[in-house]
Nucleic acid binder design. Structure first.
Lengths: 196, 196
DNA sequence: TCGTATCGAATGAACGTTCAATCAACACCT
DNA sequence: AGGTGTTGATTGAACGTTCATTCGATACGA
């Protein structure tokens, strides 16, 4: 009986499903989103989702890796454009702030979601590649003498912790002004917390 | 047909259920914990849980408020024992670090859980009373000249953000040493990020 | 005996997942 | 070119399971 032509062009289904998943997972949460919900929002059938993904968890995993990869790309770009730890870390916060304004959903899913609950077996966010790269920026800064010598974890947390907290406040709508407006203030605090 | 005497003394059921909920919710997550799971872990029957709580969500809500209240008590105590913003805020971080070591589950549920997903309608954590109290400590410090004048949200995030990030790293087992070992280093970073 | 606390089997809704049916597109043969 | 077979994408109804919740029965204290 099937085969009402879907409004979604072929070859685009994966992306449509991932986009719908990003929207629904961040809006209502992974467990409050059913696969039929996902299908409806993506404009495809339930079966189609299972043709492109192993199961519901696989959708979340694909989404997670896709977003993390694009974040990692941005970090790599920053590493190429800036040499000093100071410039690099400021660029990171600038990028994270901009991303929060322009792609709230993505930021919410990456920083705020509890992946442990629906992606068992995945390492926690803070041991993902992007976070590791940020630690490397800090380590290089300590080696070059820009940053005080101390435990790398403490330094990284101090340097980025304030910005990340502000991002979550923004995602919770507790902060109503755009984050970039606060960039200078945040950076001043962040940098002088670890500067040599 | 029941009534096998439960091993739980009467009047203790609420507490047993809350303790089991704290353990299971933090271990596996709210949505991966069924009410029968809860009953088994608490050593009571399913029906008994529904006698003491409206529904599953009500268990989570009671747990949340109970933990938040006890945290708020500790903050009030700190407010009474210390006068300067510097002493107060340092005491807050000390208390949070100790709490993370001695009551991991409680800390995990308060700081790390996504309450939005299973407690719709509750305000986000960072607009809860404890967080508000921490902001007041910071505001008082700005009024007294201990802390640089700036946006309160920025100052609070900078002051506590590093510590909170370290706590989540600890909860994720990314950090293996006890947090109190890092207290001095963290505090030095935190305070000089906002000190006048 | 009345009210309250407790029990766990029963209920029904909702969920993730499967699968036979269908179709579009292409390759291949004549 | 026209006919034919094959492949793989797509569909949604159907399936079996699990879950939150209810409820009638039971026990106990007052």
């Amino acid at each position: 009986m099937p085969r009402t032509p879907s409004s979604v062009e072929p070859g685009q289904i994966r992306d449509h499903v991932l986009a719908a998943a990003l929207h629904l997972f961040t809006q209502r949460g992974y467990f409050n989103t059913s696969v039929p919900d996902l299908a409806r929002a993506a404009g495809v059938s339930v079966g189609s989702i299972y043709h492109h993904f192993k199961d519901k968890e696989d959708v979340a995993r694909a989404l997670y890796f896709s977003l993390m990869d694009s974040l990692q790309d941005k970090l790599a770009e920053i590493a190429g454009q800036h040499q000093s730890a100071q410039d690099r870390c400021r660029a990171v916060i600038t990028m994270l702030f901009d991303l929060t304004e322009t792609r709230r959903d993505a930021m919410d899913f990456m920083l705020y979601a509890k992946h442990r609950e629906f992606l068992p077996g995945e390492p926690p966010v803070c041991s993902s590649k992007p976070f590791e790269t940020m630690r490397q920026f800090v380590e290089a800064g300590m080696a070059s003498g820009e940053i005080r010598r101390m435990d790398v974890m403490v330094a990284t947390s101090s340097l980025f912790g304030g910005a990340i907290r502000l991002i979550t406040a923004r995602l919770d709508n507790v902060l109503t002004e755009p984050l970039p407006d606060r960039l200078d203030a945040v950076w001043q605090c962040a940098w002088c917390s670890v500067a040599a």
